[in-house]
Simulated scan of single mutants.
Amino acid sequence: MKVPISIVSNIFNPTGPAAPGGLEIFNYYLARELEKRGEDVKLFASGDSQKLRCLVPLVDKSLQFSKSKEFLFDPWNYRKITFEEFAIFAKFIEDKSNHNRVLHFNMDNFLPVYLAAKKGLPMLNTIHLLTKSLGYRILGDLLTEEEMRSVHFIGVSKRQVKDFPYNYRVIHHGVDLRDFHYSDNFSNNFIWIGRFVEAKGCSDAIAAAKKAGEKLEIGGEAKIKNEVEYFESSIKPELNRKIKLKGFVKQNTRSDFYQAKALIFSSKKDEAFGLTIIEAMACGTPVIAYARGAASEVIKEGKTGFIIQPDDVNGLVSAMKKINQLPAKEYLAMRKRCRENIEKNFSLKIMADRYLEVYNEIYQDFLSKKSK
């Protein structure tokens, strides 16, 4: 018997490989993989998401693209959008056709998790944020101990959940190896990719590249007010013939972008995982990373990249020099180890297998309780 699975995505952005955030990309690839396997899966997302047979639109158009650029430019208006999300997700939970399916919540809106727990629905919540997020504390205050136990939390890295007070298990992210291709042909650039906010640390990557005298290609795009302000003040003035802006890198061109000397992951704040790390390594590209997110769980020091103490720009410079000093044969061996590590430990297939185990466990428990 197949387990009926409902993956519930964020509706602010379209869900799919071209989405600006890792959360929407995660939902798309997991749903696509389960659909390909013939599982009973539905993906609840916005109607302008990447098309899959299992897509069930919660809204016709993602909330971001239903608003004007002027509206989105003001961060205060995002609070208004949150209330729109509340109403849509409340309606979803009230729909009885969803009550006999395993609900897999993947979003930064905690209302549907709260409502589903109150109704005793079978569910899990993959934690895409840091566990110190206020939302988890609020959930713990509003739900009884028994209701909190009914929420199956999934962490995406051990570091993320090390102080999490509720029951959880860890399932690392995985990438679809068909979309990220290994190659021995790569550019002589170092690369950085992410959102233009101070927390993502693009400024540190630029500072390190300048100190090392290396070329750096930057993938990213400024859209809302705080991103534009950060880009104009901290990134744009640093651009030159060696520090170049690539712009937003679409998912179908990421494999080409990642074919570089090394990725710099220089996040200034802790992260839940850091999806770009495994995307780059799937393409054979070593990663130089601050010890944040899942970096220490993915990167094998000196074998597939280098782990640097957080905020140590000189440490980034030193690692860049180590990459440059590797003999060609050793560097190519490092690239092969990167790909092999992702194939063995961080593929989409492995991730989907682990989620299916959890879905089955939750569903069998639900049926058992229902029959009593």
Rank of each mutant, 00 (worst) to 15 (best):
V3I: 14
N13F: 15
N13P: 00
A19S: 15
A19M: 06
G22E: 04
I25T: 14
Y28K: 08
L30F: 06
K36N: 13
R37A: 14
A45I: 00
Q50P: 01
L55N: 09
Q64P: 00
Q64W: 11
S68N: 11
N77R: 05
F89T: 02
F89S: 02
F92Q: 09
N106Y: 00
L111D: 04
N125G: 00
T131V: 14
S133N: 15
L134R: 15
G140Y: 05
F153E: 04
G155I: 01
Q160R: 01
Y166L: 10
N167T: 00
V170P: 03
G174W: 04
R178E: 14
F186C: 01
F186R: 14
F186L: 05
N189Y: 09
S203K: 13
A209E: 10
K215E: 13
I218R: 07
A222I: 11
K223N: 12
N226A: 13
V228A: 11
Y230R: 09
F231V: 09
R241K: 10
V249D: 00
Q251W: 04
Q259F: 03
A260P: 04
I264K: 00
F265P: 02
L275D: 02
G293M: 08
A294R: 07
A294V: 08
E297V: 04
G305W: 03
I308K: 05
Q309Y: 06
D311K: 13
D312S: 12
V313L: 01
V313H: 01
V317K: 02
Y331A: 01
L332P: 00
M334P: 12
R335H: 08
K349A: 14
A352V: 13
A352D: 10
V358Q: 13
V358D: 11
Q364S: 07
D365A: 14
